[in-house]
Computed example of a mutant assay.
Amino acid sequence: MILNFTTPERIKLMRESERMSRSEASKEWGLKSDALWRYETGKAVPNIDVVTSMLNHPRFEKYALWFTTEKIAPEAGQIAPALAHFGQENLESPPLRKNAG
């Protein structure tokens, strides 16, 4: 299954999966709250130093592989954030039905 999350979506998913407010995450990552808002909404792109800082934080390092490749390696402690805000939606298309006649 290929999901192809954008960088803003990935940042927000990590934060929400840790049940952190934007203010809490900003403090943990050493960012201004408005900077994190801009990153999560796609108004700004975090540079590599910001992303590295986020992924090196002890609370978020478990998402590093997923953040960069959308792959996981649970045996190495690398997981994906919970997709809670995506609900119980089925990500596959239903089969097509043809009516006879």
Rank of each mutant, 00 (worst) to 15 (best):
Q88N: 13
P74L: 13
F60L: 14
R22D: 01
M20P: 02
F67T: 03
L36V: 10
K12W: 00
E75H: 07
E24W: 02
E24S: 15
Y39C: 06
Y39D: 06
I79G: 01
E18H: 07
K71E: 13
E24K: 15
N90Q: 09
E61L: 06
W66Y: 02
E70C: 01
N90L: 06
E70M: 08
G87A: 13
I11K: 01
D34A: 09
V45K: 10
A84L: 10
Q88V: 06
G30W: 03
Q88S: 15
F60R: 05
Y39V: 10
P74T: 10
S93A: 10
D49H: 13
A44Q: 13
M20W: 11
P94T: 03
A35Y: 01
S53L: 06
K32W: 08
K62G: 05
G77E: 10
F60N: 05
R10N: 06
K12V: 04
R97P: 02
S93G: 04
R97Y: 07
E28A: 12
G30I: 13
Y39G: 02
S26T: 08
V50K: 04
D49F: 14
A84R: 10
I11R: 00
P94V: 09
T68N: 12
W37E: 15
T41W: 06
D34S: 14
I48L: 14
K98F: 13
R10L: 14
V50R: 00
P81G: 04
E28M: 13
R59Y: 13
F86Q: 00
T68P: 02
E24R: 11
E70N: 07
